[in-house]
Design a protein around this nucleic acid. Sequence first.
DNA 1: CTGTTAGCGCGTTCAC
DNA 2: GTGAACGCGCTAACAG
Lengths: 339, 339
Amino acid sequence: MNEIKRPTIIDVARAAKVGSSTVSRHVRGGKSVSPEVARRIEIAIAQLGYEPNTLARSLRVGRTQTLGVLFPHVNNVFYGNAIRTIQMEARRHGFTVMLLTHQEEPKLQQEQLASLKRSQVDGVILVPAAETNVAQVRALLGTIPVVAIDRSLGSAVDSVVLDNYKAAREATEHLLGHHHSHIVSVTAHYKLHPLQNRLKGYKEAMDAAGRTAETIIWRDTEQLRSELSLALQRKRGPATAILSMSYSVSIAILSALQDCKIALNEIGFIGIDDMEFASFLNPSLTAVAQPAEQLARLAVEQLLRRTAGVNEKPVQVVLPGKMILRTSCGCKPIAPRRH
Amino acid sequence: MNEIKRPTIIDVARAAKVGSSTVSRHVRGGKSVSPEVARRIEIAIAQLGYEPNTLARSLRVGRTQTLGVLFPHVNNVFYGNAIRTIQMEARRHGFTVMLLTHQEEPKLQQEQLASLKRSQVDGVILVPAAETNVAQVRALLGTIPVVAIDRSLGSAVDSVVLDNYKAAREATEHLLGHHHSHIVSVTAHYKLHPLQNRLKGYKEAMDAAGRTAETIIWRDTEQLRSELSLALQRKRGPATAILSMSYSVSIAILSALQDCKIALNEIGFIGIDDMEFASFLNPSLTAVAQPAEQLARLAVEQLLRRTAGVNEKPVQVVLPGKMILRTSCGCKPIAPRRH
DNA sequence: CTGTTAGCGCGTTCAC
DNA sequence: GTGAACGCGCTAACAG
């Protein structure tokens, strides 16, 4: 019950009959301390159950050993995996992580960035919301280093992202290879760099194949449903396949298809971003998966480099996705139900 | 470019020609400061771009205004929503959140709890891993208040959980009501309180209906698949419906069913925990959803009460789930494919 | 109502 | 190799 007050470095010093600075030196690294003294300190620490006070240390040295992570939300596999990896990597390097979400709302994003600044995190890993102003981020964060993940923030900020163009281009070409000539792409209305690059990849693949590109921009449930059903069911040249540009778009599409009672097995489908349930649908959904762990690891590494004071010019890392072939693209026959 | 050093409260005091404690008083709440002085302080703050140093404040007052949140992971709707709500509620009360995950590993859980202790969070919201030792948690956390969410930690710790017994009982009864007499329940091997209570609800519902309960414990992919296919396909009294005891179990079941090519439309199914894609399957999956937001809100409230020093005896909050009727339970005809 | 002062616990010169 | 003393930025007593 002697927990009224946690022991300080001074208590340890007294117990070990040394000066507090000697304890300090010993605690934080095998600095030059005589073996005999080191032993006494260890004993004192164990007896008192001493633990250094992070707050005091941070205040003193001006660093918190904390990384801020600001994501839109945590509800998809990609983000979930990325977050897990970031935490593990950070831990490995002696950093803890402060995770926040901005729900795709610029206003909330601002507040959360301000909050990270107040918490004096040593660096920030950010998935910027749509229409994010780089200058504003910089202003909100002061001198705290940032690296963008998943969505680039322009050439002035380090970023680690998927090769969006290629992902979409390859997915499109794959669909074309399965004799889908009318492929409609569906994207979100957010002005997000990844989406734009994906769209470009899609369009250029269609162009190269001499097909006309067609894009539906998802604004709301109703509108998506009507445009989608029109595209798929019109008499003249109906689309036979869909390329979904992101996780949330895929969810919206599935929902819309369901509403208008269009079964998945009637059309081709590839989504960018894999989904945990992709294999449970019938047909199972082919998708381009993002290398979440790798992206996360590189982001942390780059951030720690900045944190350590490295001052190279902004780095733009671009990683290839991985197409996971299932049945919705036409690769394998759709699994028959049990007869 | 004058960002060499951020201004301190003393800089503000000087600029406003007042004492630093006056600035302090003003900054942190409409305490008694004369209007004239208040104005001068405001101006100084604006000019210098002063922001209080959280670290120094925390060191001084002994509180960090931070809540620790330790979840198994973030990859399911329930946890995702709970996390979002916790963050919002915490923010509303002026707290920030430090979110960590333990991946269901007791060892990692220990480390993360220790990490939260080191960070001196003012309180912890915990979804304990299986086999968690309450005494150990207490030891690791010292005097920091904890509230368990989703999974109870016994009567000595505040907790906010689903009415697991009732959820399972009602789901079972619902299935029975649709003339499923052979219902097999599937659960995980973890010794988790919620699972045990759910199992109890299931068993008692079966008993009451004069049916024999049958439970498959998921240990690994292979074993689940074989036991499940046996239960569903045996000649004598095959099971006609499945009650899944949790999100992760449902995922495993879906995967197993797929492997042995048993279509969902041949059996009845209800899962505890809703899944974001439940409505996309055919048949769509009936589920008992947890009131994530409500649970989260109550957890935060209770924790803040503890943080504020309230010393009532441990509270056990139990909230009812909500059954979301779709088609897999037999409620509505299974949507036909487009003809 | 306001200013002065003394720590919160630690890391860091700088003498010894 | 070691310890004394100072200060990181802030708040809480206390005196005015």
